[in-house]
Structure formats: C-alpha cells, structure tokens
Design a protein around this nucleic acid. Sequence first.
DNA 1: TGCTTAAATGGACAACGTGTCCGCTTAGTG
DNA 2: CACTAAGCGGACACGTTGTCCATTTAAGCA
Lengths: 181, 181
Amino acid sequence: MERADAARNRARILEAAAELFAARPPHEVTMDDIAKAAGVGRGTLYRRYPDRASIAVALLDEHERELQERLLRGDPPLGPGAPPAERLAAFYAAMVRLLEDHAHLVLGSEVGRTRFQTGAYGFWRAHVRSLLVAAGTPRPDALVDTLLAPLAPEVYVFQRSDLGLGMDEIVEALTRLTRVL
Amino acid sequence: MERADAARNRARILEAAAELFAARPPHEVTMDDIAKAAGVGRGTLYRRYPDRASIAVALLDEHERELQERLLRGDPPLGPGAPPAERLAAFYAAMVRLLEDHAHLVLGSEVGRTRFQTGAYGFWRAHVRSLLVAAGTPRPDALVDTLLAPLAPEVYVFQRSDLGLGMDEIVEALTRLTRVL
DNA sequence: TGCTTAAATGGACAACGTGTCCGCTTAGTG
DNA sequence: CACTAAGCGGACACGTTGTCCATTTAAGCA
C-alpha cells in the first residue's frame, strides 16, 4: 500500500533519471540533478534511492526480468530444450543485445565489485552454472565467472566504441568460448 | 634532472600510498590522507599525481614491467618457444600470481573503463593477440578482450574472496579457455 | 464531510573531498 | 655568496553527499 504521492514521485524520478543517463555519462549526473529534473526534493530522492546505482538497477530491472523469463520458459535455444552449448551461445547473444541497448544504464549502476552483488548477476550465474552442469563440465564453480566476465559492461563498451567492433563480431567471439563445455 | 627534494618527496609519496592502499580499500583513501602520511602538502602531491589512479599505476609499474620482460625474453612456456596454447596458459598463471599479490593496487588504479586505457593493458592485449595469430586463430581482434576479461581485478577478487576459490582453481578454469585457440 | 494520524515531502545544513592558486622556501649553478 | 627557477604547502573556493526536521498531504474512519 504505497501512497499515491509516493508512487507518482517514484515514477517521476525514474523517468527523469532515464533521460539524464541517456544524455550524459553516469558519473556526471549528480543526485541533485536527478532530484531537480524530477521536481522533488533531495530528501525524497534519498528516501528511496540511496545512490545512483540503485536508480540504475531499478531502471534495468524490467529489461532483465524479461530476459530471465525467456531463459526459464522461452523457446529454445534460449529457453530449455536445446543442447547446453547452444543455449550458452544464445544467452551470450541475448546479453549482447541487452548491453547494446542499455550499456549506459548498466554503467550507471556503479561498475566494479558491486556488479557481482546484484540479484541479476546471481541469476546469470545460476543459469550458466546449470548449463555447465547439464553439459557435464567438471568443477563448474570456477568456470562460471570466467565465462561471464566478458559480459562486463566496461568490456563491451571498450570493444564496441574504442575498438569499433560490431555486435556480430563480439557475439561470434563469445560463441567460440562455448567450446569449453 | 629532477631536483633532490622532488625525488625525495616522490619516494615518500609512493611509500605512504603503498601502505595506505594495503591497509584499507582504495576508495577510502583520500588524496589528503596520502599527502599527510607522506608529510607533504596537497599541492606537492597533485603536482605529480593528479588522482589516485596515477599513484596506483606508478606503484604497479615495476611489477608489470618484470612480467612483461619475462613474456618477451623469459624461458618457455612464459617466454617464446612453447606452443601458443601453453604460452597462454602460462600467461594466465602469471597474471593470477600478479593479481594475488597486488589486486588491491590494481583496484586502487580506478577500476572500470580506465583499465583499458593503461599502457599495461595494451601490452597484455598485444601479447595475447600475437599468441592467437601464432595459433592461426581467425579474427583475433574480437577474441582478445574476451580472453582478457576474466583477469579483471574485480572478477578475481570476487572469485577469491566472495566465492572462496583457490588460486589453483582459478588458474585451472582459465587454462580451459585456451581450448579456443 | 471533517478529523486524526502516520507517511511523505523538500530544502536547509554540516561535513567532506577535490583541485587550484600563490606567496614562501630551497636546491642547484656560476 | 648570490641569483634564479623549480619546488613546496596550506589556505581557499567549490561542488557533492547524506541527514534532519518542521511542514504538508494522503488515506482511513466516524
């Protein structure tokens, strides 16, 4: 039972933050900017979102949920039914799509160590781990994060912007990783 | 021709910074802390090192140089002479060693996008790329950063500290990646 | 509708870190 | 010893952060 004004402000904040994050690099957007753009006071903003990261996480949430749904119950090769290696390749392709569309948001959600502590990372981790297990790969725990590492947003942005690689080239390189299964 | 007092202060700064970085997380160490610990003024500190990252880079420099030297002119399998896949595995093992000893410093050198812009990353990149070329791997450029991604310090710290994996387990997982050659 | 209450608001405020600036000091040179 | 330019260091101004609390407002109830 969230109060009406609270719900309205939450929506305003997310909308304003999305625009600001799209317009300029995340670390140039201050909490004050977001509060001003949303037309709310600092206190109101901090009440819900203690830092930029939590705002970006909230914004990403729906997109991630959708992919998670397709991983669990979608059609093969993304969903259940296909061989593990193919499912991993499909997962890589889908994640690249997600990064392409929302890399700026992911970068806004405070890159670095915190990435591993989000619920989303836990989900990707569990998914890939289950694929490794299904493929009969020994000692999956050591390998999971190794296979997930190239999906770090910084890596993607570097490959895409600084190196000028295309999405397809990146997906192709990731696909080659599935040989380790 | 660096003045004697300048050289003395540079040494003091690096020594103090090394201690502080070892004692607590990098982002809790302020430039002011370093200046105070080194017994120099803010201006003196900023004259040489405009931010924490540049200090950490300077601290890492010697360790990285040593490994770079061994890659270029050391004994196989790290140095020239061994098959590319074995050299890559040896490189992984050596990097894990470096991370184990100095991860806190690497983390101090401002994690994230900047990592890719350091000279050191360029060196690792060129090395791995040459191994891919030597192995006859097609389209090496897309694959290099994919193979380098699991060596991001955040990933290593997560595997080592949060997951409790051992060095050998991580090295073993990385070694499995060399199959893509 | 009017009353009550607890949640929600927003802006002022203190604390902190950053980076710069400039008068003073000191090393190096002839 | 004197001169000069490089080096020094701390004060300062600025921007950001996170908290606090007096005021407002939504929602439930008589």
